[in-house]
Simulated scan of single mutants.
Amino acid sequence: MTKLTEAQISDKLANLEGWELNDNALETTFEFQNFKEAFTLMTRIAFECEAQNHHPDWSNVYNKLNIRLNTHDAGGVTEKDFKLAETIEALVSTNPE
């Protein structure tokens, strides 16, 4: 995977509401109603991460999930990160409340 330029990343971020470029990675935070909802979504995301063989740096505190994506081998953000971010967004948007 080839590292994207800042201009390419900015263009792609226009289609990912709530995500931003921070210190050479894509980042976002989701807030849920409770811990169970946050952890349930983390589990669903984990299966997709395995399927894509791409794993986020993430943390969970009670109802908040912080996600950071970059491609370590490429030294920055690649198409792989955007693909996973789009998958995550799809899972969040279909998450039953």
Rank of each mutant, 00 (worst) to 15 (best):
G18E: 03
L91M: 06
V77N: 02
E89P: 01
W58N: 10
N66R: 06
K12N: 04
S93C: 02
K36L: 13
D11G: 04
T87P: 05
N53I: 02
N15A: 08
K36T: 14
N66C: 09
L13K: 04
V61E: 06
I67V: 15
E17I: 05
E6N: 13
P96T: 03
L91V: 00
E97H: 11
T2M: 05
N60K: 13
H72R: 07
N63F: 09
A7N: 09
N60G: 04
N66W: 06
T71L: 01
M1Y: 04
G76M: 13
P96W: 00
A46H: 06
Q33D: 13
K80D: 07
D81R: 07
K12T: 00
F35Y: 15
G76L: 10
T28R: 12
A25F: 07
E97M: 11
N60A: 08
L16Y: 05
E37W: 09
K12Q: 11
N24V: 00
W58L: 11
D81H: 03
L41Q: 14
N63K: 13
N24C: 03
A46C: 02
V61M: 04
N95S: 12
T78Y: 03
T43R: 10
V92H: 14
A51F: 00
A14D: 12
S93P: 00
Q8G: 09
T94L: 05
Y62D: 07
T71E: 01
N34P: 15
E6S: 10
P56E: 04
A7R: 06
I9M: 06
A74W: 04
Q52D: 05
E79L: 05
D73G: 15
D57C: 02
N66D: 12
W19C: 04
E48V: 07
E37I: 07
A51I: 00
T5W: 08
T40D: 12
L69Y: 06
E50Q: 15
E27K: 09
I9E: 10
K64Q: 13
T28N: 12
H72L: 08
T71Y: 02
N22L: 12
N53V: 01
G18H: 01
G75A: 13
F35W: 15
W19Y: 00
E89T: 02
S59Y: 03
A7D: 09
I45E: 10
A90W: 04
I9K: 04
F35I: 10
N70V: 01
E37T: 12
A46L: 11
R68D: 08
L26C: 13
A38K: 07
L69F: 04
H55S: 10
T5K: 04
A85R: 02
L13G: 06
I88Q: 03
L84T: 08
K36E: 11
P96F: 01
